[in-house]
Design a protein around this nucleic acid. Sequence first.
DNA 1: CGTAGTATTGAAACGGATCAATATCTGTGG
DNA 2: CCACAGATATTGATCCGTTTCAATACTACG
Lengths: 248, 248
Amino acid sequence: MTAAAAAAAAAAALDSRQGPALAARRFLNKEEGLVAQILTPRQRQQLLDISTVVKVPKGHYFFREGQAADAVFVCRTGAVKSFRELPSGAKRIKSFLFPRDLFGLAEAGHYVNTARALMPSSCYRIDLEQLVELLQRDAALEFQFLVKLTHEIRESQRRVIMLARKDAIGRLAMFFVMLRDRQVESKGSNLVSLPMSRSDIAGFVGHSLETVSRATTRLVKQGMIAFDGRHRLRILDSGRLERIAANV
Amino acid sequence: MTAAAAAAAAAAALDSRQGPALAARRFLNKEEGLVAQILTPRQRQQLLDISTVVKVPKGHYFFREGQAADAVFVCRTGAVKSFRELPSGAKRIKSFLFPRDLFGLAEAGHYVNTARALMPSSCYRIDLEQLVELLQRDAALEFQFLVKLTHEIRESQRRVIMLARKDAIGRLAMFFVMLRDRQVESKGSNLVSLPMSRSDIAGFVGHSLETVSRATTRLVKQGMIAFDGRHRLRILDSGRLERIAANV
DNA sequence: CGTAGTATTGAAACGGATCAATATCTGTGG
DNA sequence: CCACAGATATTGATCCGTTTCAATACTACG
């Protein structure tokens, strides 16, 4: 886990517009440099060779919980939610996936979560068997996956930090900041797209739908954020929002 | 993330008594086979060659948050807690480490957490630079780390599930079950050692110290668990405890 | 054996969950 | 393109559990 982090530090930033790419996201505290993976053109081509592009309309599934796992996915366009249906009927949202995100965690050969498109989306579908074979042959490529997993762990830990907070406003603030930081495109624009429903947000931050609603209302009333419709968030006072988000 | 899982499924169980070993822990739902890593004797020797054994008394530190990260650690004996000091003074416990656990997550070349011995402990200290080099050369070994990271992610997700619960008893039950499952030695014995303080537990499960105390008391009164002193837990009715732990 | 840190127990207050009613969207078909 | 219906979201009132503050009990270590 740490090994990868060191490598990540050593890695230079790279932008990849074509072919599968792994998103190395920014961390909580803004760092000077965006740590990213290097995929050589050849590696990207190798991944392309064993992958197909899957397009689905809003609300459709990439895979469902329990299904045999024979592929990994990398989000290409759109947005996806990964969740688990609980016996109680509630949905526990595991994560929201945006372009360049890797998903498809399996356990004992079966998908752990269900992946559903929040809007019309497309993903690279990478055959698992071939991928494993490829990784075994190419240590450098495998290393990129290792780095990617380290990011995954940190992201998960960030979520743990969020859930450890008891105040609804703080959790929401963290959630919004996390989303903004992930949407690299919106850099500087202070516009964040919220393709998920309020109830999905609730499932993610671990509060009830009503509490999420009240908390967002309070943030709006305090002038930190504003909405252009329910799925378009504008951050008005990012300094204050971040202070609340960081204020543990 | 998924690639590794598939490989994990393919991996056979192995017990390693000497040299660094990576713990592949059991998952929430007991599975038929204990999924573990394979480290060949040669790989283990390679890791040994670049590692040293560090012994510290109770309460001492392996490293502190922010320190330059130049090594990974694998717990050998004892128990370690990994945590972060918050501005507010509170400690947020990231994880408890037991023999065979890997730790030392770094970000931008510095340790993210502080690692402190809960009891007299020893760890393998693996030089990071050499490890990275070794991993780059040995895809198979690197793959083991990849598998290990996948476990780490699942563990983290399990923690997320725990934190998403609002009831104190449920969280505690999950915590105790998690601990028991990690202490492979205690297999069948129903005895779990709790080397950490109540306040550490509170920091881990995300509740106040008092709430943890009250919840354990209730579990005791309901006859599910009992204590031999504050650091020795006996699970009396593991069926009921597990049902509460799973009852999401 | 005493003392400082650690844990338990009690009482009061705060905040989120839940139940319930109303308002607002979104996507569909006319 | 509009209107309408079902789904989604907001807002309100009450209840319940955790936090907090405070006092007391325990335990481990010198």
